[in-house]
């Protein structure tokens, strides 16, 4: 199973959702399908995509938040599973593409390569009720549909091949992605009747 194929399969469902993706190949493959202002690409700080997802989901109950994680990143922040289990954001879908490899940094084997470490079992052990492992594209698609329909925290560990795109590059600087993503998130929130708190510099003299 290829991650790019999985992303292509779910793209029509996630292109209007808030999506936080990890760095490297996963970010690029999503971008190559077509950037949306509701996509945030975490190109560093490995492990924190799911934490950003929690911060978003917690404060935006009207949104479905999708986190696209990887085995290498998830292994750097295993505590996130316990934190997610504790707060159980019902509107968060946490997808972990497990390619058993630190692909973006040279393809070294990750701890999940030999099939010893099971991230879905870790998630379940942390207290996340809906955590499944899939190895086929069809199974991935079914797990994704179930997760999107479920009003509960869902984790999907998708076992994929360690392959990525040939060409990397995005047409914006990293802070620009953050600025535009924030604007998009806040506009969507404002549409629910929410009023943003005053910004520094927006009142009084400079």
């Amino acid at each position: 199973m290829e991650r790019a194929k999985c992303l292509e399969l779910i793209y029509p469902e996630i292109e209007d959702k808030l999506v936080v993706t990890i760095m490297g190949a996963c970010a690029q493959e999503l971008y190559d399908l077509g950037h949306r202002e509701s996509f945030f690409y975490l190109q560093h700080a490995m492990g924190l995509a799911s934490s950003i997802g929690l911060g978003l989901a917690r404060h935006l109950p009207h949104e479905k938040v999708i986190v696209l994680d990887g085995d290498g990143s998830a292994l750097m922040n295993l505590g996130t599973f316990a934190t997610l289990a504790r707060y159980r954001p019902s509107n968060l879908v946490h997808i972990i593409f497990d390619n058993g490899s630190l692909l973006s940094t040279g393809g070294f084997d990750s701890h999940t390569t030999a099939g010893i470490t099971d991230l879905a079992a870790i998630a379940r052990g942390a207290g996340i009720e809906h955590a499944v492992s899939v190895t086929e594209t069809m199974g991935f698609g079914e797990a994704f549909v179930e997760a999107m329909e479920r009003a509960d925290l869902s984790v999907i560990v998708a076992h994929v091949d360690a392959v990525g795109p040939d060409i990397y590059g995005m047409d914006f600087a990293l802070p620009e992605n953050a600025f535009r993503f924030k604007r998009c998130v806040q506009e969507r929130r404002a549409a629910t009747g929410w009023k943003p708190p005053p910004r520094p510099g927006s009142v009084g003299s400079a």
Partner: peptide, 23 residues
């Protein structure tokens, strides 16, 4: 809304999410 984390680095992500949300 209090969110307790397992390690402080998680809180940097949570804070970023809250900032994006406007909270």
């Amino acid at each position: 809304d209090l969110i307790q984390v397992a390690k402080e680095e998680e809180a940097i992500g949570v804070a970023a999410g809250a900032y994006f949300a406007g909270e």
